[in-house]
Write a protein that binds this DNA or RNA. Structure first.
Lengths: 153, 153
DNA sequence: GTTCCAGATGCAACTATGTCGCATCTGCAG
DNA sequence: CTGCAGATGCGACATAGTTGCATCTGGAAC
């Protein structure tokens, strides 16, 4: 990701926030910078740490509330991981993906965004259930850990 | 589920615990009774409440440790729900199912256990990732809530 | 039935992840 | 520049789960 890409992501996010009539404060701006400059999956505490490292301390409550605003604005996605904190990342249409969590090493892998399309269609027609495929990570074991995996636990 | 079914489930669970050389204590026995007599999905606190109602008070730590033993023994499955506590239920081969959680009303629905078979095969061959399909609930919106659902959040 | 001890339990303190009420501060519209 | 809705800081609270340690007990050995 080039500096240019980062700037584009920041601008895009800020524009979308403004379009919703939300204010652009120091905390929000810094938080968007952190998310835009990062391709990893960050927990709320990770984000607070990076804000502090960038010399923009924000209270934990502010981080959570800001993330909530960004999620509501459709700018950020939060993904729940079984055990441990939720992770947050900017939504990027050309970078859409689902998440796989290794139960042994804890690594988060990306999966193609169309992975669950068939499942979604089946659930919709059979149970009327509208699947939200990106809201939780699927779990299992990565290539490295799979051979030693113990199914229980 | 008839009283007979419950008794069979209890006996089966106790036998499997013994086979692993684990002790059958009052707390464990009562906890298995609770799980065997219930088709719902119970959180650790739900279980503690039902134990208390059955006049077998067990400390929260004991409930967690006992559940962990049962999970390790392959007798109980725990399913993580985004937001809120994990739920536990006895594993019953002829009753296997996956879980769907409605993000609006919080209801837990069952889904056929083969729902993710294709996905599992794709992940295994393409990424070497071994999916554990029952460890997390899939989220979305049930038939009732879907029409009003707001995707963000 | 008694003894013994690994393992189970009770308890309290602790961690982690969020949430909330309220006083203060600040973006930004006018 | 000013006013104020909305954002922030702070601390207390809530929930879910874990851990260290002293005590108790299931069940095997005798």
């Amino acid at each position: 990701m080039t500096p240019n890409d980062v700037a584009r992501r920041v601008d895009d996010a800020v524009a979308r926030l403004r379009a919703r009539g939300e204010r652009i404060t120091k905390a929000r701006s810094a938080l968007i910078d952190v998310l835009a400059g990062c391709e990893d999956h960050l927990s709320a505490d990770d984000i607070a740490d990076r804000l502090a490292a960038a010399e923009t301390v924000a209270h934990r409550a502010t981080v959570y509330r800001t993330l909530e605003s960004l999620v509501k604005a459709g700018i950020v996605a939060h993904v729940h991981l079984p055990h441990g904190a939720a992770t947050y990342h900017l939504i990027d249409a050309d970078r859409a993906h689902l998440h796989l969590l290794c139960r042994t090493c804890g690594e988060i892998l990306d999966a193609p965004s169309d992975l669950l399309d068939d499942v979604r269609a089946r659930l919709e027609s059979s149970a009327g259930f509208r699947l939200d495929p990106d809201h939780v990570a699927l779990t299992g074991w990565c290539r490295t850990c799979a051979p030693d995996a113990d199914v229980a636990g």
